[in-house]
Amino acid sequence: MAVFDTGSFVEATMEDIARAAGVTRVTVYAHFAGKTEILRALVTRVYEVADDIYADLAALPAWTRQGVRGWLEGATARWHLVAPVVRALAAAGPAATGEGARDRYRAARERHVALLTEDPRRWRGVPPAEARQRALMAVLQLESFLSVWLAGGWPVETDDPLDLLADALCHLLMPALSPGPG
Rank of each mutant, 00 (worst) to 15 (best):
T27R: 06
Y47T: 11
A30C: 07
R132Y: 01
R111N: 04
T76M: 07
V85T: 15
E48V: 10
V26R: 05
D56E: 09
T24M: 06
T36W: 04
A138I: 04
R121V: 09
R124T: 14
A88D: 03
W123N: 02
H80P: 08
V126Y: 00
G22L: 12
G70N: 03
V85L: 11
A21V: 05
G125E: 12
M137H: 11
R78L: 09
Q133M: 12
W71K: 02
T97M: 15
L72W: 13
W123C: 05
V28F: 06
A92I: 04
P128T: 05
H112W: 15
R40W: 13
R134C: 00
R45D: 13
A95L: 10
W123Q: 03
A131C: 13
R111I: 06
I38N: 01
A75M: 08
R122C: 00
F32A: 11
R25H: 06
A131S: 14
A59W: 00
L81R: 07
I38E: 07
E110S: 07
A55Q: 05
P127L: 00
A21D: 07
D52S: 08
G67V: 02
A129E: 05
V126C: 03
P94Q: 13
W71S: 02
F32S: 09
G125S: 10
A135C: 06
L81H: 05
G74L: 14
E118S: 14
R45F: 08
A75S: 08
R121T: 07
V43R: 15
A59K: 01
G125P: 11
L116A: 04
H31F: 08
H31E: 10
H80F: 14
A30L: 10
E110C: 06
K35F: 06
P120T: 05
T24C: 06
K35P: 06
I53N: 10
A95Q: 13
R40T: 09
A41W: 11
L39P: 01
A91D: 08
V126N: 02
R102E: 15
E73W: 09
V26S: 07
L142C: 05
L60E: 02
Q133S: 14
L60I: 03
V82F: 03
A131R: 04
E37A: 14
L115I: 02
R124H: 14
P84K: 04
A50Q: 14
L57K: 02
A62H: 13
A135T: 05
A30F: 04
R124S: 15
R121C: 11
A59C: 05
P120F: 05
Q66E: 01
G22S: 13
W123D: 00
V139L: 03
T36F: 07
V26N: 07
V113L: 02
R87P: 09
R25P: 11
E73V: 03
V26F: 00
L81T: 13
H80R: 15
H31D: 09
R78G: 02
G74H: 14
A41I: 07
D56M: 00
